[in-house]
Structures are given as C-alpha cells and as structure tokens.
Design a protein around this nucleic acid. Structure first.
Lengths: 334, 334
DNA sequence: ATGAAAGCGCTAACAT
DNA sequence: ATGTTAGCGCTTTCAT
C-alpha cells in the first residue's frame, strides 16, 4: 500500500498558496487571485501561476476558504432514517425526490450532504442551509433543525408554524381524487390504510373523508399501517380473518396497496372484481404490479427542485414562500 | 420574513468561543475543552460554560475546526450522474447501496456528501475520502478522482490498476449462474442484453459464456442495451420483428429483463413457456413483476457498508484490500 | 496589476 | 485545572 502515488494521498504534505507564491516570488494573494480568476491579474502571470500550481500538485483547501468566506456552498439534506431494504423503494420518500434536489443543487454549484437527523445534531456538518425530508412525528425533526438557526425548508404537510417554508403535494386533493375513484366504481364500504401520525397521510385521509361526504359510501375501517407491503398485507389479512368486509381500499402509498391486494387475493377475493384499490405516489412498481395499480401521482423530481431552489433563495436572503404541488390520479386496473 | 427567530438565522452574528470566554472571564481554550468534553475540565466550569453557550445560542463553526484539525469527518460519494426518473429505480445503482454506505458512515460519525463527478471536479467539497460508484467508461471517473490525491474506493469491477481498492459483486459467477439457469431449462438459443462497455456487465457476459462452454447451447445475439426497461423492450422487439428466434435471455439487469419480457409477450410468445428469462440485481420490482422474475441477487447494503468501512480504513492509514462479494440465483417464474 | 497586513474561529502544544 | 501563544490556509481591505 501507499507506494508512490497510489490510491492514497501523495505522501508529502500538500503545497499551499504560500508555497506557490514563494516558488515564483510573488505574493500569495496573487496566487489566490490567479487561481480563482477573480480580479485583474495579468494573463501571463495567471498562466504561470496556474501551470506552477498544476506542476506542484496544488489543491485548494476548501475548509480554509469556507472559514474565510463564511459560507460552504453546501446544503444538508436531512432524512429521518437511513433507507433500508425492506422498505420497498425506500418509502416514504423515493430516490427521485433526492434526484430533483441534486439536479438543482448541482446546477447551482452547491454540494449536498446527506445525513440523518441524529447525525446532524451530533456531528453537524458545515452547511449554509438545510432541506428536511419529513417533519417527523410531533414535529421533532423540524424543531431540532430550527434550533440550529440555519435557513431551512421542509418537504411534507404544512401543519407547522405558518412562517415555516414547506414544499409538498396537495395531499387533501389526492385524498379527494381517491374518493372519486372508488365512488365512481360504486364502492361503498371503504378501508383506509395508513399512519395518520404522519402529517401527509393525515391530509390524505382528511381529503378522502371530505370527498365521501354526501355520498352513500363510508369508511368502515381506518388502520394505522407503516409504509410497507408487509404492513398492508398484515392489516388486510387480519381484517378478513375477522370476517370484516369492504369493497374499496385507499392506501397511503403504493407499497401498502400492493400488500393489501396480495392479502385480498389470498383470501379468495379478486381485484378489481370484488375490491377496488387505489394507492399513492405512482411509484415505479405501480405499473408493473399485477393488477396494474391505480394511484395518486406526486411529482417528486419537481418537488426536489423546488426544495433546492427555495433553500438557496433563503440562503441568499431572498423572500420565499411555501408551495403546494398538484397531484394526479393515474387510473389503471386496480 | 426574518422576523425575530424565524426560519432564518437569529439575525445578529453568531457568538464565537471568544464571546463566551469573555462573558465568563475564562480563556477560550477552556470553552473549547468544555464543549468538546475533551480534556480535564472541572465539572462546575464545564456546566457553567455549557449553559452559557446554550443561552447565548452558540454553534460550533465547523469550517474553523476542520481547518484547524486538517480533517472534515466527511466522505464524498461520487455518482456518475444524477438519478433520473426514467431510469427505473435509478439503475444501475439502487438506493440500497447508498443506504449501506450511509448506515456505516453515520455509525462512524462521518458525514456523507453526495455529488456527481463533474461537480466534484469543479467545486470540490471538503472531504477526507471518496467512494466512487462506477468507474465510468474508459476509467474516466476513477482517473479524475485519483488525480485529486484523496483516499478513495470504487464500486464495480476490478479492471483497473491492481492497487486500486474495489468492492463489487462476483459478476462472473453471476453470469455462470445465469447460464446454469437457462441450460437447466433446456434453452439453447440465447440472447444477451447489456452494455459491455460497462465493466460489470462485461464480467457478467464473460461468466455467461464460460458457463455455456461444453454445452450445446450458444449465444445467438449480444445486444448493447442501456439499463432501462425501454431499452430492453426495444432491443427484443427489433429482433423479433426481424424474425430472429431465441428461447432464453440473460439481461444485465432486471429493468432490461422486464422490458424484454414485455416485448416477447407483445409478439405472441409466452414467458417461460417459449422463452426463459433471467435478470440481474433482484431489484424490488423483480418479485412483483408478472411473471415473477428470476434474477441474480447482489447484496447492495452489505456492499455499501464495505465501501464505507474501507474508505474509512484508508483515511485512518490502515491497509485495505479489495473485496469480491458472492451473488445468488433467485429462481422465480421467468 | 500587485502587495502587505490582518483575521475568519478554532485547537495543538506548551506553559503554569 | 486553566491560560498563552501560535497558526491551520485562505481572502478581504487597504495600500501602492
């Protein structure tokens, strides 16, 4: 290992701007200016300095610059816990949300540090702002971030203090669309599957209920249920074992919906013949599941871009407002 | 906006250790020691300093500490491009690989900055080491990282210089397992779908070919094909339109396999009755696709943990070796 | 167009 | 158990 210029560092200490300056007999500030193409530096000196820096293997010390400039060009993305394999596609927030954030940040020359709420509190990275994905039960996470005094924005439901900047989908409208879908199929005994401690799910249920008022349909059961296929399967299985009947299901996400469908079929019922099911997110699996899943689509990439844009605006000192994004009913077979 | 303690900072400049020290009439090094629970500080002073820091709203300036300590407790994870929505589950590398990395880094108190190769080169973040996901065509990415002189490890195939630390699955063995699977079903006219410019795919094909030698089966077509369902669908569709026949497919990942199956069925053939198909990755969609997809499983989370552990070991100056991880054939319906 | 001085906020090293 | 000094590497400010 570490033979010559292996995968490790060079071995010798890195040269600094002072080293380059000494080598060339100029002031280190001139080196700084030449390398950052900042001020008026004679073309010939700039060229000379750049070549010398290259030859000596110079690398900018980012920590030093960050300290001097009092900014880091870095935004923290805080998730509530590490994504794990058994949560299908890492629900509730998929990679495409991260992708949207990343695309916008990258385009603005900003780095993105991905961290959990615990790590962020314990070993805070150096960042100019924070994007928080999900506000946690009882607002814990948002409160913790708020306490750090950094500009921040949140993905989720707008249940917090009004000055908090939130980007999220119109979950109430999504719930209403789900109600329309099931009502349109003549379903009357409905099941809601989802954890309403989760603000977004709470809104979905509220919209769902609102969409049912005035109809002859009603919710026969509300089951708290994690964002996984296993949880959906188990919840529905238990109900059917107890002889409870229903003919429509609104699941808080697609994974739950898939699990629910499996349980329904395992009990000898058919989807959509006996039970109609609508999920949420229109995740990649929805269109390849059998039956193809009807779902409420959220536009994750755009949501991510909005989050990134807004936190950058906050960092720049601009005025920023919250944003509710439209959702869309995708009708398939279920 | 910015009214009182809104989502923005406090307003006034942040207090520093010097401010706390002045307030209490102690030296700032004592404040430093008290807050980092480092050296021997009297319990009463520690308590006093902590309370004062809390009261004054003190936050550690991480850039300053990073500069002073010459380390950042941060590892960069470099991906070749931003994840996008049309690449199903963001192939070729899924979130669960990131999850494994994150879990290990988080546990070690390290932050993780996620970046693309371009951004990393243009605005290097301050990091102690690098995890590179994929080596890029012609090793471009690995070479760029190498030039930065930071400790780094790579996910992928071990096709680079021998001193490079690589963690990856045993793609050759995976290819052999795929051959076994198709041979065991009596298939003889085989199709390979995948981009062999990609080192891992190259190994999968090599193993596949090795597994076929001595049998009466052979590869009738090798189609270069991106890691998407659309690419798989199009490739197979074109072949069938041309009247080319085959009875077995090995696809470089599951998305390709699903697209291929859709094309096969669209042409009036059945899977697995007429054509057997085996994919790679055992991605979450494989088990919900219809027919359920047989696939070669990689253990992404463990791979991620290994990558993180190895880069941390490198940073710590320890000796580190490459690692090839076993793969497993998951037999389902296809 | 270039330079000199100063200092960002923190902690290692060496006192006391 | 606490303090003094110095300096990490860079860029801002004010000369020249």
């Amino acid at each position: 290992m570490a033979s010559g210029t292996g995968p490790h560092g060079g071995g010798n200490a890195r040269p600094t701007m002072a080293d380059i300056a000494k080598e060339l007999g100029v002031a280190k500030i001139t080196v700084s200016r030449a390398l950052s193409s900042h001020s008026t530096v004679k073309d010939s000196t700039r060229k000379l300095i750049r070549e010398t820096a290259e030859r000596m293997g110079y690398r900018l010390n980012v920590s030093a610059r960050n300290l001097r400039q009092q900014r880091t060009r870095t935004i923290a993305v805080v998730i509530e816990m590490a994504p794990s394999h058994d949560r299908l596609m890492s629900e509730p927030y998929p990679l495409s949300l991260l992708g949207g954030i990343m695309q916008k940040l990258t385009g603005a020359g900003q780095n993105m540090v991905l961290t959990t709420i615990d790590l962020f509190a314990e070993h805070p990275p150096s960042t100019d702002g924070v994007i928080l994905l999900g506000q946690g039960v009882h607002d814990d996470a948002a409160a913790a971030i708020e306490a750090m005094g950094l500009p921040y924005v949140v993905w989720g439901a707008a249940h917090g203090p009004p000055e908090r900047i939130v980007v999220g989908s119109d979950n109430r409208a999504g719930g209403r669309l789900a109600a329309d879908y099931l009502l349109g199929r003549g379903r009357t005994k409905l099941l809601f599957l989802g954890e309403t401690q989760h603000g977004e799910v709470e809104d979905r249920l509220a919209g769902f209920e609102a969409g049912l008022t005035g109809s002859d349909a009603g919710i026969v059961n509300r089951i708290a249920c994690a964002f996984t296929a296993a949880a959906g399967r188990e919840a529905v299985s238990r109900l059917l074992d107890q002889g409870r009947m229903f003919d429509g299901i609104f699941a808080a996400n697609d994974a739950i919906a898939m699990g629910a469908i499996e349980a329904v079929e395992a009990h000898g019922l058919a989807v959509p013949a006996d039970v109609s099911v609508v999920g949420f997110d229109d995740s990649p699996g929805a269109s390849i599941f059998s039956p193809k899943l009807s779902s409420i689509r959220q536009d994750w990439p755009v949501g991510g871009e909005l989050l990134a844009q807004k936190v950058l605006d906050l960092v720049a000192g601009h005025t920023v407002v919250s944003r509710v994004m439209p959702v869309e009913l995708i009708i398939r077979e279920s």
